[in-house]
Amino acid sequence: MTDQHTPRSLIVTFYGAYGRGTGGAPAGPVPIAALIRLLAAVGVDSPSVRSAVSRLKRRGLLVADRTAGGAAGYGLSEAGRQLLEDGDRRIYGHPTARAGQGWLLAVFSVPEEERHRRHLLRSRLARLGFGTAAPGVWIAPAHVHDETRHTLQRLGLDAYVDLFRGHHLGFEPTAEAVARWWDLEALAAQHRAFLDAHEPVLRRWGRRKAVPRPEEAYRDYLLALDSWRRLPYADPGLPVALLPPEWPGGRAARVFGALHARLRDAGARYVAPVMAGAPAAG
């Protein structure tokens, strides 16, 4: 497990991939014994799982519960479910804005005596993919509006922020402005790091004609998803016309999409028996 794949991040990734119900039905709690076993497959030991679960519970994303059989487990809170649902469109759809769709502006002012909230607000806007247009003025493609509203309301930060939708009218070309608002070199480096780590995995699976082995598919998919799900937030789907030539974001999205199509359901065949307490498929 690398520094990037922290226990807490992997648990959130697991719930997003496999810990929710299908067809709109809510899932029951994940037994803690099953969660420990499933995280062991990606290199996380039992004490780290328990510690990370406790932190996620304190943050209000997980809630303690009992399974139908009476085993101790953890399910998603309503806030946790909303967080994952907000992420689905970005992570799996990876929407890309068109130049004419406009921008979302977040203008905020936080009193000095509440500077801790100012720091939280800035960090959350950055995680949502906002760039900095000016002090107290952050900008993102207009399509992130709903998720931004949900996030600010969930964290109690909406009272400090006004949201506006608009268009860039000058005075410099919009492509040059975008290069000021976002660190495009750093974003491109993140895309290339994903490709370096996971494109070889896709090539390896592409050479195989047999059905993927469930445990191996689960491990490769969970690690790829854990790496990928950060990228549509760091890069919020900026219009392609405003990005440098040979931008690696599209290629990274295609690699993740292919891994998702190849491995997600195969990995579920490993997860299901573990969740049910039966021997897992190898």
Rank of each mutant, 00 (worst) to 15 (best):
residue 51 S to T: 15
residue 248 P to L: 03
residue 235 D to Y: 06
residue 232 P to H: 04
residue 108 F to S: 15
residue 176 E to A: 05
residue 232 P to T: 06
residue 259 L to G: 05
residue 8 R to Y: 02
residue 246 E to Q: 14
residue 20 R to S: 03
residue 70 G to V: 09
residue 80 G to D: 05
residue 112 E to V: 15
residue 240 V to N: 05
residue 74 Y to F: 12
residue 257 G to F: 07
residue 241 A to E: 15
residue 160 Y to K: 03
residue 222 L to D: 03
residue 182 W to R: 01
residue 30 V to E: 05
residue 177 A to N: 02
residue 281 A to F: 03
residue 178 V to T: 01
residue 233 Y to H: 11
residue 64 A to M: 02
residue 90 R to P: 02
residue 36 I to A: 12
residue 161 V to F: 05
residue 151 T to G: 03
residue 61 L to W: 14
residue 162 D to H: 11
residue 277 G to M: 08
residue 258 A to L: 12
residue 3 D to H: 02
residue 54 S to D: 14
residue 240 V to C: 00
residue 70 G to L: 08
residue 12 V to K: 06
residue 113 E to V: 12
residue 240 V to P: 01
residue 123 S to E: 15
residue 278 A to W: 00
residue 68 A to P: 00
residue 169 L to E: 13
residue 93 G to E: 06
residue 269 R to H: 11
residue 162 D to A: 12
residue 62 L to M: 05
residue 79 A to G: 11
residue 261 A to P: 06
residue 49 V to Y: 07
residue 221 Y to S: 01
residue 135 P to H: 11
residue 256 F to I: 08
residue 104 L to M: 12
residue 201 V to T: 15
residue 275 M to A: 06
residue 26 P to W: 04
residue 1 M to I: 12
residue 154 R to G: 14
residue 195 L to N: 10
residue 154 R to D: 14
residue 243 L to I: 01
residue 255 V to C: 09
residue 32 I to R: 00
residue 141 P to N: 07
residue 60 G to N: 08
residue 202 L to Q: 11
residue 45 D to L: 03
